[in-house]
Amino acid sequence: MLSEVINPELFASAIRMATPLALAAIGGTICERSGVVNIALEGIMLIGAFFGVVVALAAGSTHISWLVAASPWLGILAAVVASVLMAGLHAFASITLRMDQVVSGTAINLLALGLTGFLMVTLYGHPGTTDPIPVAINAVFNFPTPAGGLLATAWSWIDQIVFSYTPIVYAAMIAAVVGQWALFHTRWGLHLRALGEHPRAADTVGIRVLRGRYVAVLISGVLGGLAGANLSIEQVGSFNENMTAGRGFIALAANIFGRWTPIGSYLASLLFGFADALQIKLQAFQSVVQIPVQFFLMLPYVLTVVVLAGVMGRAVAPAEVGKPYEKE
């Protein structure tokens, strides 16, 4: 049984499961570093997941062959555009109108849930799940499997854990590295972090506080859109109502666990992704271990609480996070 649970597929699955969390968590990191709490990530992802599938379905059902072939890619593009618009709404409400950021995020989450549910019925005539998208996105790499031997086994491990993923999975890894570099090794990153620590001082030296925060929230929209598209287009191949299932909130916990750094966020998301992958694997052995399936399903949420409880006292959030900035 052990080898059926712990195998390369488990680790590959963990990395896949971690991807939407990581993208959202990195988005959350960038937002919070600039001083904006982004509870809206849940809704931003959901909107992306939905409109990605809508466009992929529409383009895929035409009879123009190149359009059909490009349909999942157009879906990803649509997901990003829709999510950026939703993030823009959060930015406008929380930065320009100086609305309570958590309240604005909650409104956006409700709006996203309502809008996707409403449009689902309006467009497809039924609630629940959409049709599967006609063209899927394949793994980026596709190496031939060499014949037998120890070397071949070793290669198949590497192939599964390193080279078996769809594009957005790699995009998340790149986002972590680039995000880390941009936040901590560029002038832009220094300015952005200043907005979250001491916006008044940043303003005094000529950094444009509101614009910087807008940029941060919109970047989280791009990442949230990719996260949504990864969930619906790459992982599932269709859209289910409320398919984000709390991931936006788990992502915020991952951001905290990762100490408000992009690479930390990615690694923390890996932990949650691993928990998710493990519980899915273990479900297959439910009859052997005699534990009800619901307890496996709870695992990621329990882990989130445990991690938050363990890490909180020691992690320090950006000083001005959540506070609207008002020019004097």
Binding site: L297, M298, Y301, V305, L308, G313
Partner: peptide, 27 residues
């Protein structure tokens, strides 16, 4: 308790407990 003792944000923890409750009831 987590909010009072270590400052874990109640938005995340109550949300997670929500999902845990739904699965508990489901069981």
């Amino acid at each position: 308790l987590l909010k009072a003792r270590v400052g874990a944000h109640e938005v995340i923890t109550t949300m997670m407990f929500s999902w845990i409750a739904l699965y508990l009831v489901s069981w």
